[in-house]
Computed example of a mutant assay.
Amino acid sequence: MAFIESVTLEVADPTAADRFHTTAFGLGGQVRLRASQAPTTGFRGFTLSLVVPRPADVDALVGAAVDAGATTLKPAARSLWGYGGVVQAPDGTIWQVASSKRDTGPATGRIDEIVLLLGVEDVKASKRFYVGRGLAVAKGFGGKYVEFATGSGPVKLALYKRRGLAKVAGVSPDGTGSHRIVIGGGAGPFTDPDGFAWEAASPALTN
C-alpha cells in the first residue's frame, strides 16, 4: 500500500521554522523543512491538521502556536463535528487543530493524527489519479472529500475542494506560485494534477 512517510515544508528560514514547530507543536520527523525562496502568494492550497484527544489539547496547542508567533485565522470554538481552531505559522503554513471529542478533561499532550489536506480543483479527477498511483480510498463523499488509507504511515492524506478548504481555513482561495510543500512516500516521485510534488521516501532526509 502506498503511504506518506513525511511532508517537507519549503520555508525561507528553516532555523526559525524549526524553532516554531518545535515550540508550538513538538513535532518530530513527520514534518521536515528545507530552504526555499520560490515565489508564493495567498493560499498555498493545503492545510495540515493535528487531531488531538480533547478540546483542552486544542486550546493548549493553539495557545502555544500563537505564543510562538502564529496568527489566529479562526479562534478555537465548538461546531457540529467537535472543537477546533486554525492558525497560520510565521512561515505561512496553515494548521488546523481539532478534536472530535467533547471530553472536558485536562490536556493530554498527545497528537493522535497528522492529516494533510490538499485543496484540489476536481476531487473526482484527483481521486482517480491517486488511486492510479497505488493509494486506496478509505472514505469519500462524492466530489467533495476523499480520504485515503495510508497504512501505518505517520501522515494521513485527504482531498478537499480548494475553495471549500480555504473557507474552512478562514482565508481567500486565491493564491499563486509554489505550494511550498513536498510529500515524501511510497507512491513518489511525481507531480499531481494540482501541482503538488511527491518524492520517493527517503529515511535519510532530516530537518
Rank of each mutant, 00 (worst) to 15 (best):
E5I: 07
P14D: 04
I4E: 02
A2T: 15
R180L: 14
K144P: 00
T93G: 02
G140I: 00
G63N: 10
V7F: 00
I4L: 15
G185L: 03
F20Q: 11
T191L: 01
G151D: 08
G92R: 11
T72F: 00
A2G: 11
R162I: 10
F129V: 08
R133S: 04
G175N: 09
Y130F: 13
G143L: 07
R78I: 10
Q88L: 03
T23V: 05
L135S: 05
V66S: 01
A64E: 06
G170S: 03
E113D: 14
R128P: 03
T176W: 01
G69V: 09
L205K: 15
V171P: 05
R180C: 07
L135V: 05
W95P: 05
V58R: 08
I4R: 02
K74D: 03
G92L: 08
A98N: 09
R44F: 01
V52S: 05
A70E: 05
Q30N: 11
Y160C: 03
G45H: 09
L61T: 09
G28K: 07
E199G: 01
R163H: 12
G195S: 08
G184K: 09
V52T: 12
V123H: 06
A98Q: 03
R44H: 09
Q37H: 14
D57W: 07
L159G: 10
F141N: 12
L118E: 03
A77R: 14
T108C: 06
K161G: 15
P90L: 06
T41D: 13
T23Q: 11
G45V: 11
G195H: 04
K139V: 06
P39G: 07
G105I: 12
V131M: 10
R34D: 11
G132I: 10
F141Q: 13
G29Q: 14
S99M: 02
L117T: 13
K127N: 13
L48P: 05
G119D: 05
E147M: 12
Y130W: 11
G42L: 02
L116C: 04
A16C: 08
R44A: 12
P75G: 04
A38V: 10
V131N: 05
A64Y: 07
T47L: 04
Y145R: 08
D18V: 06
R19M: 06
F20S: 04
G92K: 10
I94H: 05
A12L: 13
G63M: 06
G28V: 03
